[in-house]
Design a protein around this nucleic acid. Structure first.
Length: 281
DNA sequence: GCCAACGTTGGC
DNA sequence: GCCAACGTTGGC
């Protein structure tokens, strides 16, 4: 149900040590997105043969190209340091592990912050409404929902490799009249295969993903609270070159799952306490 | 591996 | 509905 955006490449900052990276979009509420376009949309095509093996190495290998490409691009853009990829032996072959920038770099006990985009307005894709707002999340059992539908490798890699239970998530409303940050959630379950990619009838079906070799992953997100007021993209953009100059949201608008610096979260929470501009006199 | 054509996202 | 900014695809 959620979608994300894509990313552009630009620098920005990412959470402290590493850069962010994966980006996929999610779909969510809308439709669109799936990262791979056709995969998502069309029905069925022959499935790709499955591979029998699926150890980490193999899986990683398959994902490699696109994912890693995206990751490194963003990493570079972010100006972060990148460690050399680790070469691992796998079934006699070598494959690259995800760049260090994709791996969890957090210190013990540290929590990170992410921004995830969903579409709060109804939008029908392949017969299903992909709408997903902060209120929809709050209404889920236990306030928890899988963040399925992300079809962008950079966004996916962030979910797959970097999000951990307890991390803070800024819930962003996109593709709506007043886009902006609507609430706060947290990561409730770490990455696992996005089953929506396996269902031919699902809006975000991807014929290239199968259960023996998942191409897309998702995390579960749990509602924490709505912001006292929506912090609109327009308002956030006022700080684009100042307090929020590091937010990918403001210069890599299409990335649907992205890192947020602690300093940006601090500023956002401060902004939340200020009266809305239209309430000022 | 380059790059033109095409498709999408998503703000406006 | 437009279109800028990207990403992906596929020919070569």
């Amino acid at each position: 149900m959620r979608r994300s955006n894509r990313i552009a490449s630009k620098a920005t900052d990412l959470p402290p040590p590493l850069a962010a990276h994966a980006t996929k979009r999610s779909i969510g509420t809308n439709g669109g997105d799936g990262g791979e376009s056709d995969a998502v949309g069309l029905g069925s095509s022959p499935k790709r043969s499955k591979q029998v093996k699926q150890d980490h190495a193999v899986i990683a290998k398959k994902e490699t190209q696109k994912e890693l490409a995206g990751a490194s691009a963003s990493t570079a853009a972010a100006g972060t340091t990148t460690a050399e990829p680790i070469i691992v032996k796998a079934k006699g072959k070598t494959k690259k592990d995800p760049p260090a920038s994709q791996l969890d770099d957090r210190k013990e006990g540290e929590t990170k912050i992410w921004l995830m985009k969903a579409e709060p307005d109804s939008r029908v894709v392949k017969g299903k409404d992909v709408k997903f707002s902060i209120d929809d999340l709050a209404a889920m059992p236990n306030g928890t929902s899988p963040w399925d539908g992300v079809r962008n490798h950079e966004a996916k890699n962030i979910m797959r490799y970097r999000m951990k239970v307890g991390d803070t998530v800024l819930f962003y409303h996109s593709n709506t009249k007043t886009p902006g940050i609507a609430g706060i959630a947290e990561v409730a379950k770490e990455a696992y295969p996005d089953y929506s990619a396996f269902d031919p009838k699902h809006p975000y079906y991807d014929e290239k993903s199968d259960k023996d070799d998942p191409r897309w992953y998702m995390v579960d997100v749990k509602f924490k609270r709505k912001l006292k007021r929506l912090l609109s993209l327009k308002e956030l953009q006022e700080y684009k070159d100042k307090e929020l100059k590091n937010m990918p949201l403001l210069n890599r608008g299409r990335l649907s799952v992205q890192p947020v610096h602690q300093s940006d979260l601090d500023f956002i929470l401060e902004l939340e306490q200020r009266p809305a501009a239209d309430e000022l006199s």
